[in-house]
């Protein structure tokens, strides 16, 4: 019984809807400008991606060796490549030169990562690079 009732209701609604549609169509014929296509910017355009250092406006510095050690492998102390760090070209270059300076000044080790910085938050995952490894 209840099923029947809801079915009836729906039918009524459908009917009423149809009626309103016809009236609006009639109204639109009087004012053609309202339904004309509007020029808007592409709403599906994706946001411009930025690397983490550009986003936070950080310039890498050799004295800030704690930040630089995040771009170093904890196993070999080597600098991670651009395909892993996800930095833009200029920032990656800057990071690499600053790491080399810091290592040369004796702020940072060459062959391992400082034990105190091992638990620092990870900025990227070396296992999932942007472009595949060559090994």
């Amino acid at each position: 019984m209840s099923l029947l009732r809801t079915f009836l209701k729906r039918q009524i609604f459908a009917n009423t809807h149809r009626v309103t549609v016809s009236t609006t169509r009639f109204a639109s014929e009087l004012k053609p400008d309202e339904d004309a296509p509007v020029e808007i910017e592409n709403p599906f355009k994706k946001e411009r991606r930025e690397c983490i250092l550009c986003k936070l406006n950080i310039t890498p510095d050799y004295k800030n060796y704690r930040l630089l050690s995040q771009f170093q492998s904890p196993y070999t102390g080597r600098i991670y490549g651009r395909h892993i760090t996800g930095l833009c070209k200029s920032k990656q270059e800057k990071v690499e030169t600053e790491i080399k300076k810091a290592q040369n000044c004796g702020y940072m080790p060459y062959y391992y990562k400082d034990k105190a910085f091992l638990k620092d938050p990870k900025l990227f995952d070396p296992e999932n690079p942007i472009r595949s490894h060559r090994f």
Binding site: R49, E50, C51, C54, C88, S90, K101, N104, C105, G106
Partner: peptide, 21 residues
């Protein structure tokens, strides 16, 4: 140990990551 570095000015640059990807 002593190391001497020239200090460079921060040059303005926009992130080119989008073009690189």
């Amino acid at each position: 140990r002593q190391r001497v570095f020239r200090v460079q000015d921060d040059f303005e640059h926009s992130c080119t990551l989008e073009e690189e990807l």
